[in-house]
């Protein structure tokens, strides 16, 4: 695939943040649309095996969004939040929660703790870099997200946990 620009780069500049950065082989206006218009978002957001059955976006400060996905096993995952700042096509600030985070994983009445995400879109030479700065508000929540395997270096270790589980059964 000629347009592949590699895996997302994930860093942790502070104790409460995760930053995800990725370059796309497309101009900024198009990438902005792909991130902010429901008819586009439902074509790429989430893992391949999941179906995007809810993609609601009210793109204005104070407006909200809701993304719902259904897995092959019927499991439903709901994400949502509120837009705080919208500056097309270069910047958006919004909140995010995993709305139906199960109680046994620590989810409360409103799901997971809220993250505040600042998304920036920078174009250079026809390519666009999207950077998501995710602020989790506390080190504990940030680490829990990291522990879910977000950091690529940890992937191998977590594959080992799967092995541990297989052995221990």
């Amino acid at each position: 695939m000629s347009s592949t620009t590699g895996s997302a780069v994930i860093t942790t500049p502070t104790d409460t943040q995760i930053v995800i950065s990725r370059q796309f082989a497309a101009p900024r206006e198009l990438v902005w649309d792909a991130f902010t218009k429901p008819e586009h978002v439902r074509n790429w957001w989430g893992p391949r095996k999941y179906e995007n059955h809810i993609t609601e976006i009210d793109l204005r400060p104070g407006g909200s969004y809701r993304f719902g996905q259904r897995g092959p096993d019927g499991m439903e995952v709901l994400f949502g939040g509120t837009y705080r700042e919208i500056e097309p096509p270069r910047r958006a600030v919004y909140t995010e929660r995993w709305l139906n985070m199960p109680a046994e994983l620590g989810g409360g009445a409103e799901g997971s703790p809220e993250a505040v995400i600042t998304a920036t879109f920078d174009e250079y030479g026809g390519r666009t870099t999207v950077t998501l700065v995710c602020e989790y508000g506390s080190r504990e929540v940030r680490d829990a997200v990291l522990a879910s395997g977000m950091e690529s270096g940890m992937q191998e270790s977590y594959d080992r946990i799967d092995e541990i589980l297989a052995t221990a059964q």
Binding site: T4, A8, I10, I20, A26, V31, A34, H40, W44, W45
Partner: peptide, 12 residues
């Protein structure tokens, strides 16, 4: 993220 962004590459 890797999965989503690969799909976005194709889609773009």
């Amino acid at each position: 993220w890797d999965d989503s962004y690969q799909r976005l590459d194709d889609y773009l």
